[in-house]
Amino acid sequence: MKFAIALFAPPHAPSSRRALRFAQAALAGGHEIVRLFFYQDGVHSAASNPVCPQDELDLSGEWREFVRDQGLDAVVCIAAALRRGVLDAQEAERYQRSAVNLQAPWELSGLGQLHEATQLADRLICFGGP
C-alpha cells in the first residue's frame, strides 16, 4: 500500500508524534510512503534551529533522522514556511534574510506536491490538531 502523509501540527503537538509513529509503523509493515507533506504549523518540524531540552522528546530531530535514514520525499509547504520564518538558503538569499533554518533532507515546494502525492498514493493520512 502506498501512503501519503500530511502533517498540519507543530512538533510539540501529540499529533506530530502520532504521525511519526504511524509513518514508522507503515514502513515497518512493508508499505511505501510516497511523500510526507508538512503544512501550516507542521513546517516547524522541519526547522533546524529550535533546541529541545535534553530530557524531552526531540521530535524535530526524530523526523529529520527518519526522513534521512529512510530516504523519504519530505516536502515543506513554501508559503506556510516563509510566513513562519522557515527559510532555506535560496529563500534567505531571495528575501535577504540573515538566517537559514531549513536544510536537507527537507525540500521547500508548493501545495501542488500534496495534490500530486494524493494522486500517487492509495491513501492520504492527515495528522493535525492535538
Binding site: 509513529r21 509493515g29 492527515c126 493535525g128
Partner: peptide, 18 residues
Amino acid sequence: YPGFVELSCRFAKVNSWL
C-alpha cells in the same frame, strides 16, 4: 500503531477530523 496502519489499509478512505 501497526494496527492503525492495518486499519487505514482495510478502510477505503481515512478521514481525520483535524
